Amino acid sequence: MARIGRIPSDTLRDVDRRIEEATGAQLRRCAGSRRRIERRLRELDEEVELESLLDHNASVIASLGVMVGALVNRRLPSVPVSWTASLVQLAARGWSPLEPLLRRLGIRTAREIEIERVALGILRDDLDRLPASLGSRRFSDNAIRIVHH
């Protein structure tokens, strides 16, 4: 289950802005086409959010570190210990040292993915209510603005 907003955005503002601009570009590409909106919604169902990535990788790294430490080198459990310390920080402060790197790679938070999902829903509903002659860019920009506020 997604935990929207669990990780605050401590990322550099330009990285956040780049991710938001990419979301806006996706919305503009989808505006006016029910088929593109539906396809994008399916893509969002498959997108891995930052929170899940941190959680899942933590268990894999911890397990591998313990196994390698037991079989190869007894000093290697420091890897899962340091990762576990990172998880404690994530739970306590809502931040992980890996967050800035993952954000630079374009990994979005559950909240950001949900914002796009809701904006796409608004655009899909608008197709039924608005005249086709109006520009799709205006509605895609309005949809993301509505969801953000």
Score class of each variant (00 low, 15 high):
41 L>F: 08
41 L>H: 05
42 R>V: 06
42 R>S: 11
42 R>Y: 07
42 R>H: 07
43 E>K: 10
44 L>D: 03
45 D>S: 06
45 D>P: 03
45 D>M: 07
46 E>C: 06
46 E>N: 07
46 E>A: 12
46 E>M: 08
46 E>T: 07
47 E>K: 06
48 V>H: 08
48 V>I: 11
48 V>K: 09
48 V>L: 10
49 E>H: 12
50 L>Q: 00
50 L>I: 06
50 L>E: 00
50 L>T: 01
51 E>P: 01
51 E>F: 03
52 S>E: 14
52 S>I: 11
52 S>Y: 09
52 S>T: 15
53 L>G: 05
53 L>Q: 06
53 L>N: 04
55 D>P: 04
55 D>N: 09
56 H>Q: 15
56 H>K: 14
57 N>G: 12
57 N>L: 12
58 A>K: 04
59 S>H: 13
59 S>G: 14
60 V>Q: 12
60 V>L: 10
61 I>P: 00
62 A>H: 03
62 A>D: 05
62 A>I: 06
63 S>R: 14
63 S>L: 11
63 S>P: 06
64 L>T: 08
65 G>M: 01
66 V>S: 03
66 V>K: 00
66 V>D: 00
67 M>N: 11
67 M>G: 14
67 M>L: 13
67 M>V: 15
67 M>D: 11
67 M>A: 15
68 V>Q: 03
68 V>R: 02
69 G>Y: 00
69 G>F: 00
69 G>M: 01
70 A>W: 07
71 L>C: 10
71 L>V: 14
72 V>H: 06
73 N>Y: 06
76 L>I: 06
77 P>R: 01
77 P>V: 03
77 P>F: 01
79 V>F: 03
79 V>L: 04
79 V>T: 05
79 V>G: 01
80 P>L: 02
80 P>V: 02
80 P>T: 02
80 P>I: 02
81 V>F: 06
81 V>A: 05
82 S>N: 11
83 W>S: 04
84 T>P: 04
85 A>E: 13
85 A>G: 15
85 A>D: 15
86 S>Q: 15
86 S>V: 09
87 L>V: 11
88 V>C: 09
88 V>M: 08
89 Q>R: 15
90 L>W: 02
90 L>Y: 03
90 L>C: 03
91 A>T: 11
91 A>M: 12
92 A>S: 14
93 R>I: 09
93 R>D: 14
94 G>I: 03
95 W>N: 06
95 W>V: 10
95 W>P: 02
96 S>D: 09
96 S>T: 09
97 P>E: 13
97 P>C: 09
97 P>Y: 13
97 P>I: 13
97 P>G: 11
